[in-house]
Design a protein around this nucleic acid. Structure first.
Lengths: 192, 192
DNA sequence: TAGAATACGGAGAACCTCTCCACTTGGCTA
DNA sequence: TAGCCAAGTGGAGAGGTTCTCCGTATTCTA
């Protein structure tokens, strides 16, 4: 079985300098993506991390891989949040709260999470994708069992709708209430 | 008052060669965007049109401007569709039909229409934006007056939701039913 | 038809992504 | 502790992109 980050358990651990560079790259990427969005220059990220472009590309062969790495923390947080909510009393409220958090998450990264969501994913990215999907499926399933959410709605579709809201409102700063309002509309439909 | 395409009425008409190049560029861009999506190389478009890059940039200072120009036809069609539907008997059905057409339009262009929708627009682009918004406002307004749509929903929000669906599903070919399904969910919420 | 205004186009500057490979370094082994 | 070598580095550079500038060519007007 492969570990979560796509590295087989039998492989050697990274050399110390490689691990250090990996961390630096993620830190630099976090900053750069926050400032310039998911299109930030990879060259610039390598420069900030104090490594050459070649090193960046060995650690992260694609932009997606780097995006995934930056998101892992947030995704872990989001999944933890979902697990806590799974134990809560009110399934519907748990679902709405989590979707709200998910929306914030997707928007905070300037469409970064969403870009990750819709792309064909492999390796580490696919794992992120799956964990989020599982979280959504769990919460929606519980709400449906309790009768608070319509049964003819898949968690994939619901997630995709929220991703859509994030994408559509990602660059729109002059109506900060809009994302929540749109989520409200979708939630009205979820209640059935 | 400026005309719709951003050119003041008092300005001279374009010189014959300029008009010809303009048309060639739009035609080349239409092809290129259809093939390669909205990220198609502008250099390549200029080459196809048989003009230099400088000429492309004089006619269309930004990628957005070129996207707008390519979309004008479709947008005109879409607005004509809306006008016809405004005269129909069933306001709610008119709204749903038009939103369906809008979604197809946004998706057919590989996110091109949507990209146009969410960006801060100027000139010709802003005009496109406005015409679409007016069409949506008219159809939703009529549905609301007839009591078929909830009154606490703005046409901007509704459009943004559909744009979101287009964006979120733009690259997802392996579930061709999804866009319509998601639109269905949103429409359930519109009915209130 | 000639002059002025308009538009062209391509060379080139400044970026970008991504690859290759000579060199450096960390960790193991004797 | 010394030395070896696999693992890792980094930057030059190929080939792409966007966008600008300005000498040249074309169109319009008088």
């Amino acid at each position: 079985m492969a570990t979560g980050n796509g590295r087989a358990v039998t492989e050697r651990p990274l050399r110390a300098d490689a691990r250090r560079n990996h961390e630096r790259l993620v830190a630099a990427a976090r900053e750069a993506f926050a400032e310039a969005g998911p299109e930030a220059s990879l060259n610039e990220i390598a420069r900030r991390a104090g490594v050459g472009p070649g090193t960046l590309y060995r650690h992260f062969p694609t932009r997606q891989a780097l995006l995934s790495a930056v998101l892992q923390d947030r995704i872990r947080t989001l999944c933890g949040h979902a697990e806590r909510l799974m134990a809560a009393d009110a399934p519907y409220e748990a679902l709405t709260e989590w979707l709200g958090a998910f929306l914030v998450h997707a928007r905070v990264n300037q469409g970064l999470g969403s870009a990750l969501m819709i792309e064909e994913l492999d390796g580490m990215g696919a794992d992120c994708h799956r964990r989020i999907r599982d979280a959504a499926a769990g919460l929606l399933g519980r709400a449906q069992e309790s009768g608070a959410a319509r049964p003819d709605l898949s968690s994939e579709d619901l997630l995709q709708l929220v991703v859509g809201i994030a994408l559509a409102t990602a660059r729109n700063d002059d109506d900060p209430e809009q994302p929540d309002r749109l989520l409200g509309v979708v939630l009205d439909a979820v209640r059935g």
